[in-house]
């Protein structure tokens, strides 16, 4: 049914026809959204370049990168040190800006946002998971998770609901009143993940989230990230050095000297979520 037809039907006088029209409209909208999700990339990098100049030296960690990432995918960025994977992650996270090229996130050209608008955009769209957790040591696990919600116009009750849900999802709700120094590395990273998901962002970026953890904790964290990707349907982009961690991702991107070398799909990715 076309939009014109929908408008025509909406103007009908019969109540029963109204209900049918509403039902049809919802169905069509959902169908279109799903089609868009499957056929259109949510993140579009075109000729993306980032150069840094220090003294007289100029380095180009990203050099004319073209890349599409679909909504809901779990992407692992791999490559040697200096290949540009963290630079790409930071650009997608909106904490750095491209030197040239475009970086479209949905309908927004992130590279063209001012510093303040970018900060606002980040607070709504991005959840960042750091290698070293970066929890505030003077705040409890609960308060750390609550931090990003303070940027929203939410009541204390609503914040509490969201924080409690996030802590429960990462399985650390029993440690909500513990300070970071009272938690293990794996638990700290769980709190950091809760902080990243509590605002329900569209994209979650993780910079070597298991780099500081032992093997068992790393496996738990990766399973948790995969669970978040599958159950919440959030786009997850992860930088990693460890090839073993890539089995959790649906798509693996290899970067070298600022260029995309190859693309491959993981066999372990969640079916139906990734193209």
């Amino acid at each position: 049914m076309t939009d014109e037809a929908l408008v025509t039907n909406r103007n009908s006088d019969t109540p029963s026809t109204d209900r049918t029209d509403v039902f049809l409209a919802i169905t069509v909208t959902a169908l279109c959204a799903n089609l868009w999700r499957f056929f259109m990339a949510y993140i579009e990098c075109r000729n993306l370049t980032r150069t840094y100049t220090k003294a007289s030296t100029t380095i180009t960690p990203l050099d004319g990168l073209d890349l599409d990432i679909e909504e809901g995918s779990f992407v692992a960025l791999m490559g040697p040190s200096g290949s540009g994977k963290t630079t790409l992650l930071n650009l997608i996270a909106g904490i750095d800006s491209p030197t040239s090229g475009s970086l479209m996130m949905g309908a927004v050209d992130v590279g063209k946002l001012s510093r303040s608008k970018l900060a606002l955009w980040r607070s709504v769209n991005i959840g960042y998971i750091f290698q070293l957790y970066n929890l505030v040591p003077v705040l409890t696990a609960y308060e750390n998770v609550e931090l990003p919600l303070l940027l929203r116009n939410l009541s204390a009750k609503d914040r509490h609901k969201k924080v409690a849900a996030a802590l429960e999802l990462v399985g650390i709700d029993d440690r909500h009143d513990h300070f970071p120094r009272q938690l293990s590395g794996g638990q700290e990273q769980r709190v950091a993940i809760a902080r990243a998901i509590v605002t329900d962002p569209k994209i979650i970026v993780a910079d070597e989230p298991t780099g500081d953890l032992d093997r068992a904790s790393a496996a738990e964290i990766l399973s948790l990230l995969q669970q978040i990707n599958v159950e919440l349907g959030r786009t997850l982009i992860m930088v990693t050095h460890d090839p073993k961690t890539t089995k959790y991702a649906g798509r693996i991107l290899h970067l070298d000297k600022g260029r995309l070398l190859e693309l491959e799909s993981s066999t372990a990715s969640a079916p139906g979520i990734h193209p």
């Binding site: 996270a93 904490i95 607070s123 960042y128 750091f130």
Partner: peptide, 10 residues
Amino acid sequence: ELGMLQSLGF
């Protein structure tokens, strides 16, 4: 930590 707070959007 101040960088992290900025990355959250503060």
